[in-house]
Amino acid sequence: MKILTVALNTFREAIRDRILYLLLFFAAICIAFSRFLALLTVGDRIKIVKDVGLASISLFGMLMAILIGTGLVYKEIDKKTIFTVIAKPIHRYQFLLGKYLGLVLTLLVMIVLMSLIFLVLIFVHTLTIEWKLLIAIFFIFIELCILTAVAILFSCFSTPILSSLYSLAFYLIGHLSWSMETLIKKVKPGIGKTLLQILYTFLPDLENFNFKTEVVHNLPLPSEIYLHSFLYGLFYSLFLLALAMIIFHRKDFV
């Protein structure tokens, strides 16, 4: 109940933040812009609309998660609003989870809004509602849940600017780390290979949530992959949140 109270308050804070609407506005422009890009394309135009639309949802969702997420806890400490909350009967972990869920709820609303714009645009073209696109959008949302956990983790001990940079680095590493798999295959067995394997286990692999190509090109995928990606997202988020809670648990708010 207390987690929910903090979550709803965080949601209220986030939706009253102008930056959110600015990002939503640009996301809408980008999604709509895919229509003009399609005009310049030879071949299947609708694929371009889908590709650019999904990429826009992913990009602007990431910006929302990082830009709002990194400020959430830091602002509470910096503006000292946390003092009165900590003095109330609430555990610190409840407060942090509430903050996290509040932002996840905000992102969910934003993803729904962006998806509506996107699906309407696709509907105008094809006169059908392409439900399959929702699979790709769902996994974009799971990726955003991880990014929010990262942003909150960094904002527990760092300033918003640094936290944003760290979170952005996490995002980039997450989308490039799959190439390490190829590297591991090519390295001869030994310490180097073991170290690379350990590193690969801990580094995020956000490509697990990228189903854009498969969905856009209608490629078949076994359902276990969806389950694997979902569980990976869930456990990675929990791992990051647990780290954030450990830091937050004994932190002095001065």
């Binding site: 308050n9 209220r12 804070e13 009253r16 000292k80 609003t81 003092f83 009165t84």
Partner: peptide
């Protein structure tokens, strides 16, 4: 608290 630090958006 000493200086009133509160959620100003509420």
């Amino acid at each position: 608290p000493e200086n009133p630090y509160f959620y100003e958006y509420l």
